[in-house]
Structure formats: structure tokens, C-alpha cells
């Protein structure tokens, strides 16, 4: 099978079958916290896609070509969190200075991305599981797009849940979590999608 096909398959499986939020549990905090309005969830999702992609491109070479030959692979978590945090600050700085319109829509979510498990989780698993660079990139791309899709879909459902007639105790987060469970069950049905290939 050509590399291109595996790349696409890896993206799809990271995006849907093994969804970052619903089966790997990264980034639940923003998934629950920032999904009340479709617009804000879209902003958060796009910011996460960008940061994950760049962080993958920086962290993988950093680990493979520098930390590992130097004999200090255990410094990975420290290095990654420094990379991610400075990346977030630099992007924020750039947006704040040159693009007020972007700042208006993304500005509030940028500082939250540092403490978003999805970014560190993806970068860490990329090197923990010994992926090649192209696979790491596919994993990052698939994961982040999966996050974007799920958080937008979820926020659409949540806006409708607001007006739905739910029991009083379930109002707000509990019913949202049950909804997420049903979504997770739906995605479980996709497991083994590529079993025949």
C-alpha cells in the first residue's frame, strides 16, 4: 500500500475511530467548558488544530534528533510543555499585535490551550509509541481535526439541549455527558472499519 493511502487511513482512524475526545479522553475540559456556543467552540477547535500541528512538527525532531542521542529521553515532558507554552504565547502575541479580528474570536481561548491535554497528549504519544515522522504528522492532523469536528457537533447538540425538556437534575452538564456517552457508543461502531484492508 502506498504511503499516501496509509497517511489518509491514519488520519481517518485518528479522527473518527479512535476519536481524541470520545475514546482517548484528551481535552475533556474544553470539550465541556467551551462547547456552549457553536461559534466559540469553532474558535477553540481551530486554535487547537493549529497548535497541535506546529507542536508536532517541532517536538518530534526535538526528541528524535536531540534528546534521544543526548541520552536524556526522560526530559521529554519538560521540553514538550515548554515548546507548547511558548508556541501558544508566540501565536497569541502575533495575533494580539497584528490581527484584532482574529484576537476577538480566538484571543480568549489561546491561554487555555496550554492546559489542554490534547496537545501534550498527542505530542507525548507520538514519541512514546515510536511513530515515524509522517505517522506522527498524520496522528496530529487526525487528532486535531477530530477534536474540531467533535466539539462543533457537540456544541450544536448542546444548543438544542438547552431548550429541551430535561429533568431538573440533569440540566446542564449531566445531560451533556450522557449525550457524549451516546456519541461515544456511535463511534464505537466504527471500530474495525479497516479490518479488511
Amino acid at each position: 500500500m502506498s504511503d499516501f493511502v496509509t497517511f489518509i487511513l491514519a488520519i481517518i482512524s485518528a479522527m473518527l475511530i479512535d476519536n481524541v475526545v470520545l475514546s482517548r479522553f484528551y481535552g475533556i475540559c474544553p470539550f465541556l467548558g467551551v462547547s456552549k456556543k457553536v461559534k466559540s467552540s469553532l474558535g477553540m477547535g481551530i486554535a487547537v488544530v493549529f497548535v497541535i500541528l506546529v507542536a508536532t512538527c517541532v517536538c518530534w525532531p526535538l526528541y528524535t534528533y536531540i534528546l534521544e542521542p543526548a541520552g536524556i529521553p526522560f526530559m521529554d515532558t519538560v521540553a514538550y510543555i515548554l515548546v507548547i507554552a511558548s508556541l501558544v504565547q508566540l501565536v497569541g502575541l502575533f495575533i494580539k499585535k497584528y490581527s484584532p479580528s482574529l484576537y476577538k474570536s480566538l484571543g480568549i481561548y489561546l491561554p487555555l490551550i496550554t492546559t489542554n491535554c490534547a496537545v501534550l497528549g498527542v505530542v507525548q504519544t507520538n514519541t512514546d509509541t515510536g511513530l515515524r515522522f509522517i505517522d506522527a504528522l498524520a496522528n496530529g492532523l487526525g487528532t486535531s481535526i477530530g477534536f474540531l469536528v467533535i466539539i462543533v457537533v457537540f456544541s450544536c447538540i448542546r444548543t438544542r439541549l438547552e431548550s429541551a425538556n430535561t429533568p431538573k437534575a440533569f440540566k446542564g452538564l449531566p445531560i451533556a455527558l450522557i449525550t457524549a456517552a451516546i456519541m461515544a457508543i456511535a463511534l464505537m461502531g466504527l471500530q474495525g472499519l479497516f479490518a479488511g484492508i
Binding site: P100, Y103, K104, G107
Partner: peptide, 14 residues
């Protein structure tokens, strides 16, 4: 970058 981000004033309208 953290310090710079904090010191940069917010753009107009935000």
C-alpha cells in the same frame, strides 16, 4: 514571550 504577551496592549475594540 509570556512577558511580552502580557505587556502588549489589547487591540482596539477588544
Amino acid at each position: 514571550s509570556f512577558v511580552l504577551y502580557k505587556r502588549t496592549p489589547k487591540p482596539k475594540g477588544c
